[in-house]
Simulated scan of single mutants.
Amino acid sequence: MDHPQIERVMLTGYPNMVSQPEHCGIDAMGDEILVGDDVIELNGEIILKSNLEDYLTEYCGAEFKTAE
């Protein structure tokens, strides 16, 4: 006799444990944009908020410094 959970899996298969969020595109840095992500539009480019500093440094020549 198998464990009840094993029997359920044998009959119904494994449940989808992780639902996949809807994909909205790719940002200027090549990262996937998902529904609900914070994005910035700058000069016609879509950038994830989490990639903004990297974008400004790489494409705009910005330098981030600490005030002294």
Rank of each mutant, 00 (worst) to 15 (best):
M1G: 06
N16V: 13
I33V: 09
N51D: 06
L11Y: 07
Q20W: 11
P21N: 09
S50I: 11
L34N: 00
T66Q: 12
R8W: 15
D38G: 01
Q20A: 14
I26W: 02
R8I: 14
T57A: 14
E22M: 11
M29Q: 03
V9P: 07
L11G: 08
A62D: 06
L42E: 12
D38A: 08
F64A: 04
E53P: 06
N51A: 02
G61S: 11
M10R: 15
T12A: 08
E58L: 10
S50H: 06
P4H: 08
L42S: 01
E45W: 07
M29V: 02
L48S: 01
M10T: 10
L11A: 10
Q20H: 13
D37H: 14
N51H: 12
I26V: 15
A62K: 00
V9Q: 09
P15E: 11
E7T: 14
E63Y: 08
E63A: 15
I6G: 04
G25H: 02
F64R: 09
A67N: 04
Y55K: 11
D38Y: 07
E68T: 06
D2G: 03
K65T: 05
T12G: 06
Y55H: 13
M10W: 09
A28Q: 05
D27I: 11
F64N: 03
E53W: 05
Y14I: 02
T12V: 10
Y59S: 15
Q5Y: 09
V39Y: 00
V39T: 12
E7G: 09
I40H: 01
D2Y: 09
F64L: 03
G44Y: 07
T66P: 05
D38W: 05
N43V: 01
D38S: 11
L52D: 00
I6C: 04
P4T: 07
P15H: 07
G61M: 13
N16I: 09
D31L: 03
D54T: 11
I6A: 11
V39W: 01
E32H: 12
V18I: 12
E32R: 10
E22C: 09
S19G: 09
R8A: 15
G61Q: 12
T57Q: 15
V9T: 12
M29R: 01
L42F: 14
H23D: 06
D54E: 15
I26C: 05
E68P: 05
T57H: 04
I26S: 04
P21H: 06
S50M: 02
S19H: 07
I40Y: 00
D38C: 04
G30F: 00
D27F: 06
G61V: 03
H3K: 05
R8F: 15
C24D: 02
C24G: 04
